[in-house]
Amino acid sequence: MAVLAVQNLTKVYKSHKVLDNITLTIDSPGIWALVGPNGVGKTTFLNVITNILPTTSGTVELVGKPNKDSSVFKEVAFLQDNTVLFDYLTGHDHLKYICDVQKIHKDKIKEVAEYVGMEGYLKKTVGNYSLGMKQHLLLAMSLINEPKLLLLDEPLNGLDPSSAILMRGILLKLAENGTSILLSSHNLAEIDRVTKQILFLKDGKLTVVDMNQFEETYYNFVLSDYEILKRLLIEHGYEVKQDSLRLQLKLESDQLDRVIDLIKTEGVQIFDIQKEKIGSEKIYKEIFSGAQYEKNPV
């Protein structure tokens, strides 16, 4: 049984085809990132999946049942943007209501609040929350029923670095424990850290890309002398870029040792080396600037 099965899904909004005959199946735990520029239809796609918006044509099944069956949300959760929160209620009120609807024991509120790190402001009204605090509450509301499928719409919005690290850790742990996660995000660096499975949405079409095929590793060297070394590395066939502060080389991991030896033999001092993996960002630029790439439309 697929956790998420989308068949020939089309959504037309004001005569514009936002989603065009999309088919997608997720049948194993893991994290999938839905990527696309603003207004491309990422939120619409998630809203249609969860039946918040009706489909124009096609079918959507969640955990083996049609998405029109509200009982699917016993096993599915959707983290939406913070406009769904009620400013005049407390975080506790929100979580208690979800416990009531999901028939979950109230003890779970404290547990999940501690898990996402919001126990300190659980009893404060949401109107007084910061953007990050609201995001924590939304996450807690999504996790409280331990879903099999977790959909997240821009979950990293408004999070400070420590919260982003926490969110990333939670998502990775959930995936490890068997949850299928589909998240939309603009934060490509964060996406690179949590998943290699990217769904690009463009012109209503979904393209799935396994980033393992496209991931490139770059090493940034801070050196005592750049000019001699740059010439030497180019002569040895390395791809070199240089700016005033660093020398950037695209390397496979087994080539690093050889490059360091080469630098040492030339008597140049290494002050610092930084590793940088470039994946989704590069593909993103290529896809959305119209450049050619090898794609797998789904």
């Binding site: 509200s70 949300f73 016993k74 959707f78 609807v101």
Partner: peptide, 17 residues
């Protein structure tokens, strides 16, 4: 409304309309 979409919260809960 555009600024308050509380109704969408109910839409993703196992709740009969």
């Amino acid at each position: 409304t555009k600024k308050r979409k509380g109704l969408n919260l109910y839409a993703v809960l196992p709740l009969k309309r």
